[in-house]
Design a protein around this nucleic acid. Structure first.
Lengths: 245, 245
DNA sequence: CGTGCCGTTGACGATATTCAAGTGCAGTGG
DNA sequence: CCACTGCACTTGAATATCGTCAACGGCACG
């Protein structure tokens, strides 16, 4: 659903019908499907396409020589992997599917059509700002927060990002990550994630089973996790409505 | 010295004399001087200038409610703080001087003059790619590396960045950071930084006193720190010559 | 009906934090 | 000139947090 992208961008800038049409065009490029754990791009490659995630979750990651792995970012539906193909360069990290993925390979030429549309340029620019802000916030998360705060913070972020693109239902959302993946994203071990999740559950801050997350009291989870959502630069126009889907 | 910026950009793209002239112009805007610990921009503000660091070191940082502080990035001479002023937005973090700073306030209009120069646009675009890559690498550093690796990795990065802009002398460079600042950047405590530096010294991986760092064997320090410099996207054209400092 | 992955739990150990005290040095003011 | 203050750095001892090792159950998949 390329309208996840539309929805995300509209949280920054109001788009015209023409803009929206053009964005839909991005989702109708060469479509690729990947299975969980499959790499979309590998470190060292020189991609000449950007990738728009249509369905499913992916992640950026890096692996150290001895096998330690860090997940650097999560890509949700509507996220675009590598808009910088205008500047050919080697990937310094890899991108892999977490769930089954449907994505659209966006050629350089397809992006040229956007350059003449200031609103779209602005919207994509703002999206990039948010992406950078998220990366900075992860730096803070890994550097300063305790295990509970880290996991709570990550879940807050993911929930709010999903809500923004209409993929939440009330206080619940999909959560396809394994504990090992949460561990790789938070710089903790799977064993410790398991115990941390147990604590969060015991304190009634989250309910998480069968790949589904419920947050009984988001404000409380934010408080416990020292979560301040300003970095997501969302309009303060109140809580978005459910997406029903 | 605005030629630090020129030097950095030329590590990505060969610039014309005209390009260089335009870059020098950026350093001749309204010049500001700040003392150590002084904030250049604060979280929540809406800057309408970008800042080019001419002399001295600065850092981006965020503070949690209970006072924990994370340094998110270091700004060295030639670094530009906030090129995104074309998209007005609230700062989600602060920027502060570490040493005495001289920087140039770059107004939006001054940047307009660059838009028509493709090489400059490309150079600045690549610089931004590197900035993002550094932020990702910090994520890996904080998430996966041990104390020794983290500190070693940070010192490798800073040394190489300084060397790129001609601020190294042989295997030595300035290192104005206090142990507390290194702690805030690596997510460790000052006490532990002290012990970690001692270990690095004992293993003859670094010499650090009086705000000066020497790295007897860079390759060895890289190995110990699991440092792979690809993310800095430097030309592989061999080791840059000394800048003479 | 194995095999592999995911989640769970216990026991133990390593790494890093906290608390506390003391040194040296630069800057300030009497 | 000398006391006084603040800050950076150093070190030791006790503690907390998180990691490692190991084992087991459930479940999906071939």
């Amino acid at each position: 659903m390329e309208n996840r992208l539309v929805r995300k961008l509209e949280s920054h800038v109001r788009l015209s019908a023409e803009d929206v049409r053009r964005l839909h065009g991005l989702g109708r490029q060469k479509v690729r499907r990947l299975r969980p754990r499959e790499d979309i791009i590998r470190e060292g490659e020189r991609p000449d396409h950007a990738y728009l995630v249509l369905q499913g979750w992916a992640c950026r990651y890096k692996v150290l020589e001895d096998g330690r792995r860090q997940i650097i970012a999560f890509l949700l539906p509507g996220d675009i992997s590598d808009l910088d193909i205008f500047l050919p360069h080697e990937m310094d990290h890899s991108v892999a599917a977490i769930t089954p993925i449907i994505c659209s390979e966006i050629a350089r030429e397809a992006l040229d059509g956007i350059a003449g549309h200031p609103r779209l340029v602005e919207a994509l620019g703002r999206d990039r700002l948010v992406e950078a802000a998220i990366q900075r916030e992860w730096t803070v998360n890994l550097g300063q927060r305790t295990a509970i705060e880290r996991v709570g913070h990550l879940l807050c972020e993911l929930f709010i990002r999903l809500r923004t693109i209409g993929l939440s239902q009330g206080n619940r959302c999909e959560m396809p990550l394994t504990q090992t993946e949460i561990a790789d994203a938070t710089g903790l071990t799977p064993v410790h994630i398991n115990r941390t999740l147990r604590q969060l559950r015991a304190r009634n801050l989250i309910a998480l089973h069968d790949k589904e997350l419920a947050i009984p009291d988001l404000e409380q989870l934010k408080r416990v996790s020292q979560f301040n959502g300003n970095y997501l630069h969302l309009e303060q126009a109140g809580t978005p409505v459910d997406g029903g889907g």
